[in-house]
Design a protein around this nucleic acid. Structure first.
Lengths: 157, 157
DNA sequence: TATTGTTATACTCTATAACTATA
DNA sequence: TATAGTTATAGAGTATAACAATA
């Protein structure tokens, strides 16, 4: 949405009328901020030809040790069929390999290749620079406060 | 995203590994909150068979006086072809009418029907109840602080 | 019988271009 | 020539079910 944020095109459903009470809703300014942040992530990742999901995938595989596709699906909240597409595409680019697990030959585990790790690390630097620039508007205290406030909105259970 | 929020399926790309530094990013907790809020909006609108965009459309037309399709497109950041689909669907349901503007017969302006207004008002009450329940976790001061903090993240220009 | 992954399909959204009718 | 709207089409993302291999 966001009548006022630059990330105009290629974004999500919503919008708010500037003058209407709609714009007063929590939902609107939270998602407007989210969209702005997503826009900057996309911008940062563009040179590496990675979308956010692909970046998160590489980050997850690099952080965990050779997770299985099922593990990845749980983290991304994606069903298996989408995981296949996602990982195959990254495998085709030589960024990771998909290997069958010896102890359970139904499962496939994911390994980042050196090329994948190098790309991820470059992308990570770009992401960090981008977030630093954005978060520069917030003091450390602000950031902690923001996180705490947003936490109160999340499902309690 | 959100490994921890209920709005699991039918949501957006992202995700965060709970243990990885990924979860520390502003982007993640802001969009996690946005997704939680969107989930509650969808839930509230479900009984009225409205999605968020349709609801915003009705709200906008009800607030503005007979806006043109172009006006709507600018608010929603949608191109004309999508506006056509959107408004036609609502018109088929008898929630609004699309009439050609006398002073410029290329343009069409949108009018909410009594049925559309009634549905919108019911939906609005549901939305208000839903947001109240969520925002109950925040004091008035919290809400103002949240808005201010998020505002700092938005594009300056 | 349940689980992991795979394939196929349909449906919604989104993006784009070509077209019309008016201006 | 430009503008408001329309139609058609292609693509991405998502959701679902059926299936194979393995446990």
């Amino acid at each position: 949405m966001g009548f006022s944020s630059k990330p105009a095109a290629t974004t999500q459903p919503l919008a708010a009328a500037q003058t209407s009470p709609l714009g007063e809703h929590l939902y609107f300014y939270v998602s407007q901020a989210a969209r702005a942040l997503e826009y900057h992530w996309r911008l940062a990742l563009e040179p590496y030809d990675l979308n956010v999901r692909q970046y998160v995938t590489l980050a997850f595989i690099a952080a965990e040790h050779t997770p299985t596709q099922l593990d990845l699906g749980q983290v991304l909240h994606l069903d298996p069929s989408q995981i296949v597409k996602l990982t195959k595409r990254l495998a085709e680019r030589g960024l990771l390999t998909r290997e069958t697990l010896a102890t359970d030959r139904r499962a496939k585990y994911l390994v980042v290749t050196p090329a994948g790790l190098a790309l991820y690390q470059q992308a990570q630097q770009a992401i960090d620079r981008s977030e630093e620039a954005l978060a520069a508007a917030l003091s450390r205290r602000d950031r902690i406060a923001l996180r705490s406030l947003l936490g109160k909105l999340l499902p309690v259970s």
